[in-house]
C-alpha cells in the first residue's frame, strides 16, 4: 500500500514535470475553437453540435499522451522491474491510469464551463455535463491503456492506438452524448445516468487485468 502511494506520487510528479497538462488542455481548446469556428461558417452552432464537439474533443485529447504511458518504462527497463517486483502489475496500471486521468482529463473538465459559456451553453447545463464527465471519463483513460499495451515497442504506434481505441470509446460517447442532450433539454433520465456510470465502473474494474495480460505477452 505504501509502495503504491509512493508510486502514485512519483508518477504524478513526473507527469506534472513533463508539462503534459498544458499540452492536452491547449489541444482541447484549439480543437473546440477550430471546430466551433468551422461550424460557425456554415451557420451550424447550436447547442447540440457543441456538445458533440466537446465529447469528441475530450476523447481525442485523452489519447494524446497515452503512448508514453508504458513506452518510457518499457524502454528504460522499469517495466521489467515492476514485473519482477512484489507489486502486482495490475496495481501499477491502475495507478498509471488514475494519474493519466488526473493530468489529462481533469484539467479539461474543469475548463469546460469556461469554454462552453461563450460558445452558447448555459453555465448550469455545462456544470451538470461536467459532473457527468467527471464520472465517465475515467473509463476513457482506463480503456486507452489497452491500446498503449498493444502497441508497446512499436514505432509510430500513435496512429495505431487511435485506430484500436477510438471505436472502444463508443459506448461511453453514445451514452454521454445522449445524457448531455437530455440535460440541455431538461429531460432528466436517471436510468441513463446509472447505466453510464455502471459502464464506466465496469471498464475501470476490468481493463487493468486485460492490460496486464497484454503487457505480459511482451515478456514471454
Amino acid at each position: 500500500m505504501k509502495l503504491s502511494f509512493h508510486l502514485f506520487k512519483y508518477e504524478l510528479l513526473f507527469a506534472l514535470a513533463n508539462k503534459g497538462i498544458l499540452l492536452s488542455t491547449s489541444f482541447f481548446i484549439i480543437l473546440i475553437l477550430i471546430v466551433g469556428i468551422g461550424f460557425g461558417q456554415i451557420g451550424e452552432s447550436s447547442e447540440k453540435t457543441l456538445l458533440a464537439i466537446i465529447w469528441i474533443a475530450i476523447s481525442l485529447s485523452s489519447l494524446l499522451s497515452i503512448k508514453t504511458m508504458f513506452q518510457e518504462d518499457f524502454d528504460d527497463g522499469n517495466l521489467d522491474l515492476y514485473i519482477l517486483s512484489n507489486t502486482s502489475i495490475e496495481t501499477i496500471i491502475f495507478i498509471k491510469s488514475i494519474v493519466h486521468w488526473i493530468t489529462t482529463n481533469l484539467p479539461i473538465i474543469t475548463l469546460i464551463p469556461l469554454i462552453s459559456f461563450p460558445l452558447g451553453i448555459t453555465i448550469y447545463h455545462s456544470i451538470l455535463i461536467c459532473l457527468v464527465m467527471l464520472l465517465s471519463t475515467p473509463a476513457l483513460s482506463f480503456i486507452s491503456t489497452i491500446g498503449a499495451a498493444l502497441t508497446l515497442g512499436e514505432k509510430g504506434g500513435n496512429l495505431l492506438i487511435s485506430i484500436f481505441i477510438l471505436p472502444t470509446f463508443l459506448p461511453i460517447i453514445i451514452f454521454g452524448m445522449k445524457i448531455s442532450l437530455l440535460i440541455t433539454t431538461s429531460n432528466y433520465d436517471i436510468m441513463a445516468h446509472l447505466i453510464l456510470f455502471a459502464l464506466s465502473l465496469i471498464c475501470i474494474a476490468i481493463t487493468p487485468f486485460i492490460t496486464s495480460l497484454i503487457i505480459k505477452i511482451h515478456y514471454t
Binding site: T168, L170, P171, I174, F175, L199
Partner: peptide, 8 residues
C-alpha cells in the same frame, strides 16, 4: 466493446 456499443 462492439457488443456494448450495440446495446448502447
Amino acid at each position: 466493446f462492439a457488443l456494448l456499443s450495440r446495446y448502447a
